[in-house]
Amino acid sequence: MSTSTSPRFPTATHSRELADRLWNAAAAGDEHTATDVVLRALDEGLDPESVLLDVIAKVQVRVGEEWAANRISVAQEHAATAINERAVTALSLHPTARRAPCRGPITVACVDGEWHALPARMLAEVLRLRGWQVDYLGAQVPAPHLISHLHTTKADAVALSASIPTRLPTAHAAITACQAIGVPVLVGGAAFGPDGRYAQLLGAQAWAPDARAAADRLAEAPLPRPRTDHQQLDDLPHLADQEYTLVARSSASLVRTVLLALPDAFPAMHGYDDVARERTAQDLAHIVEFLAAALYLDDEDLFTRFITWTARILQARNVAAQSLPPALNLFAHELKDFPRASRILRRGIEALTTDHTTAGTPV
C-alpha cells in the first residue's frame, strides 16, 4: 500500500482508464476483478472520493445507458449494479477511506418505494470521507420509520434520494414529516428534475445534482431549520381539484379498460402473444403512474419527458412505439372529465408526434 500521506488525484485520462477496466469487469459479471481495480487504485494512493465518484459512479451511469440502448439485459444491468455496490463496499473498508467523524450526524435514505439505492449509498460514503457521522438507511424507507430514527439520533439534516419521479408524492410526505420535527432536508436524484425544480416546489431546504455537490453544500453552512408549524402539503393548491387522487386510486381499472380497447385502436396488437400483452399492460401502468405524478406536480413536462423516453426505449427494443398515441387517446377518453389530465395527455401525444427519433418507428 502507498505510504503517501496525502492522496493523489487521478488525471482525467487515468480515471477513464480505471472506469473502462471496472466497466469490463462489471459487464462480465467478474466481481473479483472489479473490486481489485478499486483496491489497487486505492493502494496506489488515489483519492477515495475520486475513485468513488469519477470511476465507480461513471461506470454506473454507463450501466444505465447500456440498458436503455438494449445492449445489456435487465439481468445484466442488475448484476453490474450489484458488482458496483460491492466495489463501493470494498472502497469503504479500505484503510485510506476510514476517517474518524469530526462533523455532526447526517441521515441518508431513499424515499419509500425507491429501490435505486446506489446513489444514496455513494453520497453516504462521500459524507463519511469528509468527516460526517452518517446513518445510511438504504432503499425504500417508510416515512414513519425515518421519523422514528430521527427522534433517536437527533440528526443535523436528512439527505433524501429519489430516482423515479413517480416517487415524488411520497418524497413530499417524507420531506414534510422531517420538517415537522425540525429537521432540514437536502434532496437529490433524477426524480427532482435536472435543475432541481421539484425540490423547490416540494419545499426541501436544499437540492444537489450529485454527491459531490451535496457534500459541498452541507459543508458550506448548516441547512436552515424548518418551521415546525408550517403545513407544506397545503402549498400545492392545484391538488384541490382531486384529479391526482382520483387518477392514482383508479389506476388498475384505467389500465384494464385501455388494455381491452387498445387492439381495436392499434390493430397490430391482435398479433401479440401473452408475454407481449403483459409487457403492454406494464407500460400502460407506468403511463398512469407518470400521469399521476405530473398531476401532483402540475407539470406537463414531466409527462412528456417520460413518454418520449418510453418511445425511445421501445424503439431500441424493436417494439412499436406507434402504439403509444392510441393508448394516450384512450386514456384521454376515459379521463375526459379531468381537465388537467386531458391537457397533459394531449401534450404527450403532441410530443410523440414532433419527436423525430420516434415518429418513424416501424410497427
Score class of each variant (00 low, 15 high):
Tyr296Asn: 10
Val51Glu: 05
Ala109Glu: 06
Glu220Asp: 11
Ile349Gln: 14
Ala294Glu: 13
Thr170Tyr: 03
Ala87Gly: 06
Glu220Thr: 14
Thr361Glu: 04
Asp337Pro: 00
Leu260Ser: 08
Thr353Asp: 15
Asp241His: 07
Trp207Ser: 00
Ala97Asp: 06
Ala204Leu: 12
Val51Lys: 02
Arg167Ile: 06
Asp299Trp: 12
Ala211Lys: 07
Ala82Ile: 01
Gly203Met: 06
Leu42Glu: 07
Pro101Glu: 13
Thr354Pro: 03
Phe331Pro: 00
Ala359Asn: 05
Arg256Asp: 15
Gly360Gln: 13
Leu335Asp: 07
Tyr136Val: 07
Pro362Thr: 06
Glu77His: 05
Leu22Tyr: 13
Asp234Tyr: 11
Ile344Leu: 11
Arg249Val: 00
Asp216Cys: 01
Ile106Gly: 04
Ser161Trp: 00
Cys102Arg: 15
Leu118Glu: 05
Ile147Arg: 13
Thr257Leu: 13
Cys178Ile: 04
Gly113Glu: 04
Val88Met: 03
Leu127Lys: 07
Thr170Pro: 01
Ala221Thr: 12
Cys110Asn: 09
Leu127Pro: 01
Asn24His: 14
Arg277Trp: 04
Arg279Phe: 14
Leu168Met: 06
Ser92Tyr: 03
Arg317Met: 03
Pro194Asn: 13
Thr153Ser: 13
Asp20Arg: 14
Ala221Pro: 00
Ala341Thr: 02
Ala26Gln: 05
